[in-house]
Design a protein around this nucleic acid. Structure first.
Lengths: 325, 325
DNA sequence: GTCTTTTGATGCCCATTAGGCATCAAAACG
DNA sequence: CGTTTTGATGCCTAATGGGCATCAAAAGAC
């Protein structure tokens, strides 16, 4: 031993005692009875005597007054009991809490989503996740794909439901949850409204309500490519975000917009949805998260494993597939 | 071992770890570096590795993510650190505080005193005690002897400055601090005022201001005995308490009263003090406290040792003797 | 009074284990 | 591609927590 100047209980760290001493002392101090305390602690009485003596020596203070028959607390003992009890109580709660947190029974997750997710898989996943992991608090923010990617890399969110049309940053893992061909949303009085499934070409003359390209460039580009493929150069009347707000503009007669069947479930009567015949822009929804450290994976800069996230990914994987409700 | 179902760190008490584990974890979590933490703890690095592994197993949670090169906190580890830090800080202060308390460097004392004490030894004792034991808070209450005796027995005060004229209860220890013959306090226009030291007999015709017998029966009786010894039956005009208030009544011309030279230091000009010639009532001042448990003293029902009180008794013993300041 | 019971302290011994040293394997670095 | 750094492991020893038996003192029984 490099520094054997203290022949006492604990080594050199700041504490001349161990938890054991405090717990033993607490029990004796409460019962004022070595034998009973020893039994309560399932320890032999001599061990208690010794432990208490050690603690007293370590603190350089008499804590108990043993009168062979009666055990009393000295002022120092009384003070120690008062000091130690709340600390022990606090400490007692720690293992359970940490275990829960590590077991995915507790914790909290920050996530982002786009309108399509909320219209399809998200509610079901959240319901199931809440059932299985009631202790985990989920923080939800609607946010465009591009912002989600930034937030994921910055560690501001743990996972996101977004559209994988942009180039995804390295280290991001995704799971495809949904792919749906877009149809068009038209005012009920539009001339194509009576046609059950128009083509893109049919829509050449119709002004469109789209979204800002910056919010999802890949998808925007694919829409444009689809138009181009049909030999059409669309007129963009408005750009709104979130996309669901396009509904209002369509109803106001400002033009048509794209939407997936899932999102078009509940529409006001002045608006109709029509699937597109022939080529149509496809919307894909993924759940994305940063690759985690795994034993031996060597990921650099990646966040450490998070049981809460793992639990969510599991539930999302099991529940997410299938049509939106 | 009776219950060997857990091959883990600690025994059965409530905590699956020891303080050591937490301290080690804190250090590693702060530095995110085993080797440096080991050095800071003056412990070999393998011991740290093992201790951390134990803690993780005990909590059933990964606390650190070791990537061979980088050490990171998992969410559980982060949570543990946050939980544990304040507790360890709180615990770190305990030994010093307890030591101080046991060493008489801290604590608090409740004591009572009579007017004579305040007029003589008490200020000096308190000044010296405050200098030597700045950490000990002293609570002072003026209180008649009889009340002090009751309070001492009930444990409501730790010691008291009083007059040992009553029968003292068993278990009480006292130390004589002062004995002074009483003189008389007279209005400046009293007929005996020009006499440098009257006798009790001279005062036969003078009405007296005394104190309620119940507040100090022994002293009251001794005053009466002194009068009787001089063949005088005094007329008691008023009874006041505390005795110092008699000064006001004397000044108002209601009569004379007894007082010790020490108490008569600072008097208004309308009042004069005269020592008594011949027999005179004597005031004694003691410091009294309950006998304590001492190794092998076998005192029963007595309070346990109190270092703060011991310290005060020491100071009082050294400083108390001698004339009042 | 004496005998019994109760209680905390001690002596002794063993099983456990904390921790030291040497070493290893993997990753980072030049 | 060797060198360095870092955390993990194997092995061993010293320390010690704790069990059993026992003791001494005090309280209670008679």
């Amino acid at each position: 031993m490099p520094n054997g100047h203290q022949k006492t209980v604990a080594r050199d760290y700041q504490f001349p005692f161990e938890l054991r001493h405090l717990v033993y002392f607490r029990e004796v101090a409460r019962r004022l009875h070595f034998r009973q305390a020893a039994e309560a602690l399932s320890v032999a009485q001599p061990a208690l005597s010794r432990s208490l003596a050690q603690l007293e020596e370590a603190l350089g203070a008499d804590l108990l007054n043993r009168t062979r028959r009666r055990v009393e607390l000295t002022p120092a003992g009384k003070a120690l009991l008062e000091r130690v009890e709340p600390l022990l109580r606090g400490l007692a709660a720690v293992p359970g809490d940490i275990r829960a947190l590590a077991g995915g029974q507790a914790g909290h997750l920050r996530m982002a989503f786009t309108g399509l997710a909320m219209a399809t898989v998200l509610p079901r996943i959240l319901r199931e996740f809440g059932r299985r992991h009631p202790g985990i608090r989920v923080e939800l923010n609607e946010s465009p794909t591009s912002a989600q990617l930034t937030a994921l890399q910055a560690g501001d969110i743990d996972c996101g439901f977004f559209h994988p049309d942009a180039t995804l940053p390295a280290g991001l893992q995704t799971r495809l949850l949904l792919r749906e061909k877009n149809g068009v949303l038209l005012p009920a009085d539009h001339r194509l409204a009576k046609q059950p499934s128009p083509t893109l070409k049919d829509l050449a003359a119709t002004p469109f309500v789209l979204f800002p390209r910056a919010n999802n460039p890949g998808f925007h580009d694919r829409i444009m490519a689809a138009f181009a493929g049909a030999g059409v150069s669309p007129r963009i009347a408005e750009e709104v975000w979130p996309r669901a707000n396009g509904v209002g503009l369509v109803r106001a007669g400002l033009g048509a917009t794209f939407m997936t069947p899932s999102e078009a479930k509940h529409l006001p009567p002045e608006i109709i949805f029509r699937p597109l015949r022939g080529p149509a822009p496809e919307s894909r929804l993924v759940l994305g998260w940063l690759a985690r450290h795994r034993p031996g994976d060597g990921g650099r800069g990646a966040p450490p494993p998070d049981p809460a996230l793992d639990a969510f990914l599991t539930v999302a994987g099991e529940t997410g597939k299938g049509t939106g409700r």
